[in-house]
Design a protein around this nucleic acid. Structure first.
Lengths: 200, 200
DNA sequence: TTTATTTTGGATCATATGATCTAAAACACC
DNA sequence: GGTGTTTTAGATCATATGATCCAAAATAAA
């Protein structure tokens, strides 16, 4: 019983994600957002609220469309070691395949968040923790089955993989060179006694 | 033959560094910079040029006062392995000791740089490369002397340490927990056959 | 002391920004 | 077809922003 929307929510959120991803939150103006979303400012505000709320929606849209599905997909790999290696491989290929050097929106946002936005910080931390937990679960399963050799404490190994991934995503934005990104991943895998990443 | 400056260049650059470090480049206005530097906008522009130039000066001031000296200091450690472990230890203590969760200005800036500023990107990359090179030199020296066991290729090991450090600095900003940061560092050191970090 | 030169303080400019307002438009339901 | 509700389009508001201008102030050199 009201005028229907003329925009596709998925499409406009894709556009918003792209702007925030490429330029960051602060460097993206609401007008630029509205233009790239092909909406007017009024429609954008009506549909998504203010800039901060829109960013949150865009971030969730990004995560829905990438991180969560990726974790689930790799966790279903034939073996935990392959899940870890496959996840790193995919992260690297995504990084190198993006000519815009956008890196990872989640990591970019984690670095841009300021002390006056603790809600966002908590949200980002919870999402980042799902990555750390993914590594931890894989290591646990692999060690239980004997596929992954026991060595350094499991928590430390998971944190090493986690921080290596973050480092790779930082480098993806500023120095996306295959040798560098793959070298870091190879180093982490080999030093933990894990099999190398699959070829691409 | 002219009116002398009334400000201390080191002090005002310290103030500028603090603002950029805490909030990032985009989120810091020129007025806020001038206020925290205790200068007028005109004096600030007269002394340092526009915002971009001031940022570059602040960044160099930051690096002069921290990164370069730190690398040199640790490289003078009794052994290459201790240099690596000591550098990581200091990075972690700096991260945890900063109640403002500022992380590392160099890493923060690397993630905020946009495609329209390739000069800054090149500069940041060159500075980041000095860290990677530091790890590589230490590994090389340690392996030549037999102190560090040969294992995975030296380049990969250096890249692993490098990306781990970047990851730690990302986490320093959003999730500065000792277990997490130390776990990542412990994982990297142990998996490369390096001695653990010194206690703090 | 005079002069040249630079810094300083305050005002100011043109534009950008986040957000809102108003009224017309579009549709579902009755 | 009328009614009610939401979206849309464009204008607009108050403020923020980066940068500059101008005159007064301060000093070294002549």
């Amino acid at each position: 019983m009201a005028r229907p929307r003329t925009f596709d929510e998925t499409a406009v959120l894709d556009a918003a994600v792209d702007r925030f991803w490429t330029q960051g939150y602060e460097a993206t103006s609401t007008r630029e957002l509205a233009d790239s979303m092909r909406m007017t400012l009024a429609s954008m505000h009506n549909a998504f609220g203010d800039k901060r709320a829109l960013f949150r929606r865009a971030l969730e849209h990004y995560l829905d469309g990438s991180l969560r599905a990726r974790i689930a997909r790799h966790e279903a790999a034939p073996s935990p070691a392959m899940a870890i290696a496959g996840f790193l491989r995919e992260s690297i290929e995504r990084s190198l395949g993006d000519g815009c050097r956008r890196g990872c929106l989640l990591v970019n946002s984690a670095l841009e968040v300021t002390p006056d936005n603790p809600d966002l910080r908590d949200f980002l931390n919870a999402e980042l923790a799902t990555i750390e937990d993914f590594f931890r679960r894989c290591l646990d399963r692999g060690r239980r089955s004997g596929e992954i050799p026991a060595g350094i404490p499991e928590g430390d190994a998971a944190r090493l993989l986690f921080s290596t991934l973050l480092g790779i995503r930082v480098l993806a934005r500023i120095r996306p060179e295959r040798d560098l990104l793959e070298g870091a991943a190879r180093g982490a895998l080999a030093s933990l006694g894990l099999p190398p990443m699959p070829d691409f």
